[in-house]
Amino acid sequence: MTGDHLDEELHNHPHRHGDGVIHTHPHSHKHAHEHHNGGNGTAILTVNGVDFEYRTTKVLEKIDVGVAQGEILAILGPNGVGKSTLLKCMNMILRPKTGTIMIDEHDLGKMSGSEIAKKAGYVAQRNEAARMTVFDSVLLGRKPHIGWKITEHDYQLVYDALEKFGLSEMQLRYIDEISGGELQRVCLCRAIVQEPSVLLLDEPTSALDLSRQMEILKLIRHVVDRHNCATIMTMHDLNLALRFADRFVFMKNGEIYASCDKSGVTPQIIEDVYGIKVEVILHNELPIVVPCE
C-alpha cells in the first residue's frame, strides 16, 4: 500500500458519517508532508465502526479512525464530546460495544491486557503521584514485559529513556515532590519504555504552562519521528494542535464530524464543532485559529 493510498483511506470516511462529515481536499495531505516526515504509509492503528455506551447513554457512534507510522493525530472537539472515551477505547481501557480496533494488524479484542500494553502506551489526563521515585515510576512502564524479575534489559531501557527525557538528574526524587511538567514527562517516559507502536495521550498539555506545553509536544514529536511509532492525542488548544499534529479529527455529538490535515482546518468546521466564529490566519506558514467574538 502506498503512502498516498493510505492517506486517502485514512482521511476520507466515505459516506459513513452522514451528511455532516467534511472531507479534506485530495491534495491537502501533501502539504502536511512538507512540514513533517509524518505518515510513511504503514497503518499502525485502525478503529473500525466503534460504538460505545455508558450504561444506556450513547457516547460514541460509528467511529472510524486510523493513524499511520510517524504520524501525530489530534482528536479535537468540545468538552464531553467523547474524545477521552474514544482514546480509552483504543487500548480497551473501555470496551467498545461494537467495532474493531487493530494495532499492527492484531485485533485488540482478542488480546490480553499486557499484550495490548506492549502495543499501546497510554498516558492519562490526571496522574496520581504515589511515594515512588522517578526511576521506579518509569520502570513501572516495563510492567507488561516483566514476569517475576526485572532484567538488565529493562534497567537499560529505563536508564536510556530517563536520559533522553532529561530526567536522569532527578531519578531518585519522589514523584509527589516534583512539578506538574516533570510529572507529565515521567508519565510520558513510562509510556515510552512500554515500547509501544502507538502512544495514546489524553490532554498531554492541559495542566502545563506555555513553555512546558512546547517542551512536551516537541518531545512527543521527537519520539514519534525517532521511534517511528504513532501518537493519538486529545487536545483543547487548537493552535498547539495545529502546530504539532499532522492530522486532525473533529468530534461532535459522539461522531466524527471532520477528518483532515492542516490545510483542511477551516473556520466553518470549527464553528460547526465549537459553536463560535473564528478566523484561521497563516502566521509563518502555520495556521492559527483566532476567535472573532
Binding site: 499486557s114 506492549k118 496520581e128 512502564g141
Partner: peptide, 13 residues
C-alpha cells in the same frame, strides 16, 4: 497506585 486508568493502560486487570 499510579492511577486506575494508568494501571489499565499498563495491562492490569
Amino acid at each position: 497506585d499510579a492511577g486506575e486508568e494508568t494501571a489499565k493502560g499498563l495491562g492490569v486487570n
